[in-house]
Design a protein around this nucleic acid. Sequence first.
DNA 1: TTGTTATATTGCAATATTACGATTAAAGAA
DNA 2: TTCTTTAATCGTAATATTGCAATATAACAA
Lengths: 110, 110
Amino acid sequence: MGIAKTEIFTEAQNEIALFAKAFGHPARVAILQHLFKINTCVCGDLVSEIGLAQPTISQHLKELKQLGLIKGNVEGTSVCYCINPDVWSKMKQIMTEFLDQDLCDNGSCC
Amino acid sequence: MGIAKTEIFTEAQNEIALFAKAFGHPARVAILQHLFKINTCVCGDLVSEIGLAQPTISQHLKELKQLGLIKGNVEGTSVCYCINPDVWSKMKQIMTEFLDQDLCDNGSCC
DNA sequence: TTGTTATATTGCAATATTACGATTAAAGAA
DNA sequence: TTCTTTAATCGTAATATTGCAATATAACAA
C-alpha cells in the first residue's frame, strides 16, 4: 500500500507518528539544529550549510512549516525561517510523554 | 530518488533520524505503548490488539527489533516481545537532547 | 506420522518519499 | 523597463514504505 491506516489508531498515536516523521530525515534534523544555533532566523544559507539542492531544502522546509514547527518570514527577495517555540514545546511535551513511559518492571520473559 | 543522502550528515543526525523513523508510524507507536503497558512481554495478541494483518504486524516488529528497541523470545510456538530497556534509554537520551535544544532568544525576525 | 497453532517470509500492488533540473514568481537594482 | 537574486513550484525518476494474501517454518499435540 504505502499508505498508513490512520483510522484504526488514536489521535494521540497519529500525532506522535506525525511529529516523529518530521525528524525521520537527517536533512530536517540538520535544518532544525541549524535554526536553533542561528537563532536570529536564517535565510537560504541553509542550502549551502546543508549539502542539498535548493528545491530539496525548500521541500523539507515546507514540511516542517506545514507541521508548524518553523515559521517563514519574507524579507525582500529572501525568506527567513525560524523555530516556532509554541509548537516546538507542544511537540516536545507530546514526544517526551511517549519517551518517558516506564516499564512496570515486575518480571518478564525477556 | 526516495533515498536519503546520509553521507552528508553527521552520525548523530542520522541516528536521530533513524530512531525517529521508528516512531514515524502509528502502528509502531501503538506496539511500543502496548509493550510498555503489558510489561510482562506479549505475544501475538498484538495482532488482535492493533487492527492490522499478522504479516504487517510481524514486519513492524522486525523493524523495531532491528533497531534494538524490542527483544523477541521464542516460547514454544509463540514469540514474546518486550521493550529492550537499555536501547530504549539510550534512544531516549539521544532524542531528549535533540528536543531540549534552546533558542538563545536574543531577538529575531520571526 | 499427521494435524494444529503461531509466527516469519515471500511476492506484489498501491502509495509515499527523496532528490533535483527546469521553470516560475516576486522583489530589488540598474 | 530589464537584469539579478532568491525562493517556490512543477515534473519526473529512483527508491522506500505500507499492507496483505499466500506460503513457509517451527514447535507442539495427538
